[in-house]
């Protein structure tokens, strides 16, 4: 019985868990090295903290309340909408849109831009790693 439970558990993890590809793994690894440097007690990235960052509301440069979810919506499997231009944004969740979190250059670019737009500063390595861990599990 125990074996069956373990087998089901392993199977379901294999089926549902999203994994970073090789180049993204290297990128996330470099973020964790940096996070450890910034804070020696760093013990790994956390999806819950990432979700809190993603949904935290700030006042944008335009003086309006804004969060990551303003454009990407609270359900990352759904299509979002650019609040400035009205153009639709393809789903952010890799489970719904496999192209997401697959290209380091794209990921790095959007993290830089979007932290600047929402937080009015760049994200720390810890914040970036947490957010990516949240998104990859969606």
């Amino acid at each position: 019985m125990k074996k069956i439970v373990i087998a089901i558990f392993l199977l379901s993890t294999a089926l549902f868990a999203q994994e970073f590809n090789a180049s993204m793994k290297t990128y996330v690894q470099s973020l964790s090295v940096e996070a450890k440097k910034e804070n020696p007690s760093f013990g790994g990235f956390d999806a819950k903290r990432g979700e809190a960052i993603f949904k935290s509301v700030h006042v944008s440069k335009k003086g309006k309340e804004i969060s990551c979810a303003t454009c990407h919506s609270n359900d990352l499997k759904q299509t979002g909408i650019n609040v400035n231009t009205g153009k639709s944004i393809t789903a952010l969740a890799p489970s719904a849109n496999p192209a997401r979190l697959s290209d380091v250059k794209e990921v790095d670019k959007w993290l830089r831009r979007n932290f600047n737009d929402v937080f009015a500063r760049e994200g720390s390595a810890l914040e970036k790693g947490d957010v990516l861990t949240y998104i990859i599990n969606q």
Binding site: N84, K105, K109, R112, R113, N114, N116, D117
Partner: peptide, 12 residues
């Protein structure tokens, strides 16, 4: 581009 109509649109 880093201040593109109020948005960071910077590129490499």
């Amino acid at each position: 581009l880093n201040e593109h109509f109020g948005t960071d649109a910077s590129l490499s």
